[in-house]
């Protein structure tokens, strides 16, 4: 076990955990931030996507020991009142079915839009290919990303 001082959603958080613990479980079980989801544990589905700085990361394969003092943002910290343009676009298009993958989709999409504010269809598809939606809401996700990009 070791103590780590983390910067999560703009707040300092101290955790005492095994250094190999993936951030996914640190967030979910030590900090009670359960919006970040477990889907596969091997960075294949994207349900656990968070931001490390401005970069989208799969938190299921990111050991807490590698975070250092980089800023972490989770779905809970993406906006104050759930009013980030991407979240609003998700509501406008009523994207979710079961909803389980959507936090990861939104986190991936927001990081992507920051790097590429006016993406084309092919760019969206390529950027979002690591995020599985088992319910098949891909078309709405793409439409929501376009809507968010237009605002």
């Amino acid at each position: 076990m070791a103590i780590f001082n983390l910067n999560i959603n703009g707040k300092k958080q101290e955790v005492d955990v095994d250094p190999a613990t993936p951030m996914l479980w640190v967030l979910r079980e030590h900090l009670d931030l359960v919006g970040t989801k477990y889907g596969c544990g091997i960075a294949q589905c994207g349900a656990c996507t968070i931001h490390l700085g401005d970069i989208a990361m799969r938190s299921c394969v990111l050991p807490v020991s590698q975070v250092g003092n980089q800023k972490i943002t989770t779905i809970e910290g993406l906006s104050e009142n759930g009013d980030h343009p991407v979240q609003k676009a998700w509501l406008e298009h009523d994207v979710p079915q079961c909803g389980y993958c959507q936090a990861g989709q939104i986190m991936n999409a927001t990081a992507f839009l920051k790097a590429n504010p006016k993406p084309g269809d092919a760019e969206i598809e390529a950027a979002m290919n690591g995020n599985i939606c088992r319910c098949g809401t891909y078309i709405r996700i793409k439409a929501a990303i376009h809507t968010a990009a237009s605002k």
Partner: peptide, 29 residues
């Protein structure tokens, strides 16, 4: 008439909704 998913806001803000999110005091895994 089309009415939006009543849980959508909670879904897009990552609120606890799912079975895996369930917690209770003293809970073991």
């Amino acid at each position: 008439t089309s009415r939006k998913n009543v849980d959508a806001k909670k879904i897009v803000t990552g609120q606890p909704l799912f079975g895996l999110d369930y917690r209770s005091e003293g809970m073991l895994i």
